[in-house]
Amino acid sequence: MMTIKVNGEIKHADVTADTPLLWVLRDVLGLTGTKFGCGVAQCGVCTVHVAGKPVRSCVLPIGAVGQREVVTIEAIGEQPNGAKIQKAWLDLEVIQCGYCQSGQIMAATALLNQTPVPDDSDIDAAMAGNLCRCGTYVRVRQAIKHAAAEV
């Protein structure tokens, strides 16, 4: 039995320690807002926060999470920067099909937490690993700047 703290709550999952966090979130805890994409940490759709850092949950074994708190797309709006990013996303209608957007929002929020006013190179460095097949990149960039400006 594994125990993790997700979105402020202690959760138990009857899985082996090498089960990826994403499997636990979606299949055991029913938190299906986080999506599965490539399964090898190359597309970014499964991004969650672990101790505030953006992490690809598809490769992170639950046994490696330890005491660190996990935050998913379901709860990111409760954080100031998460709320700002979500509002900017709606204001600029960033989303096309939406599949990658949970990961985009988690990565963008982590960026603002570390760099409150990011420039293009900061956005590239933080967001390049989050792919979007609809090509919303231009609006993702705009929305991050929009959120950063909305102090």
Partner: peptide, 18 residues
């Protein structure tokens, strides 16, 4: 690096994953 590597290896070189 920022597209394919940083999500596992980190900017510091210390992995957040393993």
């Amino acid at each position: 690096f920022e597209g394919a590597c940083v999500s596992c290896h980190g900017w510091s070189g210390q992995s957040l994953i393993t």
